[in-house]
């Protein structure tokens, strides 16, 4: 196993899938000549050529719409949205088209499509460029929404997404690209829709995903020094949502904190907490806590932005409150 960055892991998955299957191609803004604004597709244009690494105009609706159309003909497009904030410019095609066509036409239409999108705050990009709107997309049946938090999962899940028969929104976090981890070489697949226990512990269950896995792990490290053992469940996939490991862990610890980067209202934490209450009410020893972004559009100023984003201390505080 090699220790590589999240960026390399994603890049590797794309590269291997394109080598394996000629139906796989990439389209998006600056994916070709530029090499991807986050350098994920660096070198792809020279190797695979302009037919398979297609630079598009700035036209998100057309990018997703055309990807849907191409997928309907049997191709396996990987559409890149430069950031997830631009998904709103393609909202109809994502939620009204991609998420509906298979069902609405009685299963006739199959669209094996992957939409890669970079999300997350913390880089002073201001209100329109810093969002974590994952929960919005997870609201729609018909769409699969995944957001890996480790390089290995990123590689394995992107491969699974490309081979999936369904439209998958694959959410990457801009501040995780440099994160390193052990990643199996070659054909490594992590099935979509499977949560996993990332760290074992017996006092409290922290449910999280994506960037917040990093924050939660740091919190767990500090808590461990005080003798508090937190178990961390990484959701990895928001839809379908696999509650198995969450419930299993909760039945052991009887206490949970859910950590997400997006806003709390109507968010991932709201969903997970309700499901715990619905499915494991008898095991509840303390009210479940949610840690999430302050309910404001993210400001540019660094201090204010960091105030609004969930921090390690927020997770520690919430854990202590449920203990």
């Amino acid at each position: 196993m090699a220790r590589i960055t999240m960026r390399e892991a994603i890049s590797q998955a794309l590269w291997e899938e394109m080598e394996r299957d000629p139906r796989v191609f990439i389209l998006g803004e600056e994916v070709g000549v530029w090499g991807g604004t986050y350098a994920v597709t660096k070198g792809f244009y020279d190797h695979f050529g302009p037919e398979r690494v297609r630079d598009t105009p700035i036209a998100e609706a057309a990018i997703i719409g055309a990807a849907i159309g191409a997928a309907l003909t049997g191709l396996r497009p990987v559409a890149e949205l430069m950031t997830i904030n631009f998904a709103f410019s393609a909202m109809d095609h994502i939620v009204n088209q991609a998420a509906k066509l298979h069902y609405m036409f009685g299963g006739q239409m199959i669209l094996p499509l992957v939409i890669r999108a970079v999300g997350g705050g913390g880089r002073q990009l201001g209100a329109t460029h810093s969002q974590t709107p994952d929960a919005i997309f997870a609201h729609f049946p018909g769409l699969k929404v995944v957001a890996p938090g480790t390089p290995a999962d990123a590689k394995g899940m992107l491969k699974a997404a490309i081979r999936s028969q369904d439209p998958v929104l694959f959410i990457e976090h801009a501040t995780l690209y440099q994160t390193r981890g052990e990643v199996p070489e070659g054909d490594y697949i992590v099935p979509l829709g499977k949560s996993t226990i990332q760290r074992e512990g017996r006092h409290v269950t922290i449910v999280t995903y994506s960037k917040m896995l990093e924050i939660s792990t740091k919190a767990a490290d500090q808590l461990a020094k005080e003798g508090i053992e937190a178990e961390i469940v990484d959701l990895r996939s928001l839809r379908p949502l696999d509650m198995g490991p969450v419930l299993e862990s909760f039945k052991k610890t009887n206490r949970a904190v859910i950590v997400e980067e997006g806003w709390k209202s109507y968010g991932v934490g709201a969903e997970v907490a309700s499901r715990i209450y619905e499915e494991a009410f008898d095991y509840v020893d303390a009210p479940i806590k949610r840690v999430a972004q302050a309910e404001v559009p993210l400001p540019y100023n660094r201090t204010l932005e960091q105030m609004a984003l969930p921090q390690v201390e927020d997770v520690i505080k919430a854990v202590k409150e449920v203990l």
Binding site: N85, F86, S89, L125, T128, H129, Y300, N301, L304
Partner: peptide
């Protein structure tokens, strides 16, 4: 300080902003 480089504006001067999308 909430807008940054991409979001300058001064409505009184009829400058309705920089817009990032």
């Amino acid at each position: 300080g909430k807008g940054g480089s991409m979001h300058l504006a001064d409505v009184k001067k009829n400058f309705w902003g920089g817009h990032a999308i």
